[in-house]
Design a protein around this nucleic acid. Structure first.
Lengths: 142, 142
DNA sequence: ATACTTGCAAATGATTTGCCAGTGT
DNA sequence: ACACTGGCAAATCATTTGCAAGTAT
């Protein structure tokens, strides 16, 4: 879903397409990975005009409610936001170095099925991504 | 590791075994599942004398540094703490109802191995437990 | 014209820190 | 005794909320 398609969703839901909202969507799409509300408010470090932090939070919330944005929890840091289709489920986070590692979708599917089969619990790797050690950090320590 | 063994670890590390620290350890062991700093400071709802919140945080941190306590992230709620040996990795958290579901250790091992084999990334389910939908909530919605 | 939105300030919740008095060893 | 600790207040971070002014429809 492009930033443009997202605007259509807003309209369909009786919500307005404001400058501030467009800005959040553009920043989210311009960033390669999930970003914090603060980064968005700061215009992604100058790439975009800066906006009010409170409004950014409000808009992120609105955009999440209509399903075009999602947020992920990356360890102890502030929440990060990404366009819904930039599947954060394709990443795993390293607790040591914070690196996001991309994984093939099928890999997590296998893990999900294993847990579901054994317990009935259906894991989701999108809201709270899989956390652990990346190959480098795992090798470095123990 | 019992609360008593934990005290030995403290001594071994040149740290003092104070009343406040003992209280944190006892509360942690008395609670059946991971509890928040606030719950500990409140004496687990009267079961223990209440203590200062800042001290509880400081002590939880100290106890974590020597490895007798760990903390887990359960969704959007405040951090929860548990004795190190009460393997929080044996739980998965439901995003909808907050329920902690116990899973057999082997189940998560299989998932961990699948991810490690495919990517080199070594998932850990202890610090940030597996999150998703419990069987009931998954059935209730979609 | 009329809601929905914004910006700014102040509030909230979780956690941390400064400081000095208190206490384990 | 002396350094490690505890309690209390104030600070910090992430996020939320109240409200009057601004704007998309």
């Amino acid at each position: 879903m492009s930033a443009l398609a997202a605007e259509r969703v807003l309209r369909r839901n009786g919500l307005r397409v404001s400058t501030a909202r467009r800005l959040v969507l553009e920043a989210l799409h311009a960033a390669g990975e999930p970003v914090s509300a603060e980064q968005i408010a700061g215009g992604l470090g100058g790439r975009f005009p800066r906006s009010d932090l409170a409004s950014v939070y409000r808009n992120l919330d609105t955009l999440q409610r209509v399903g075009v944005v999602r947020h992920v929890h990356l360890g102890h840091t502030a929440g990060r936001y990404a366009p819904a289709e930039k599947a954060p489920s394709d990443y795993v986070v390293c607790e040591d170095c914070g690196t996001l590692t991309a994984v093939a979708a099928g890999t997590l599917d296998a893990a999900r099925d294993a847990v579901r089969a054994a317990t009935g619990f259906v894991p989701s790797f999108s809201h709270v991504p899989l956390t652990g050690r990346c190959a480098e950090c795992a090798a470095a320590e123990g």
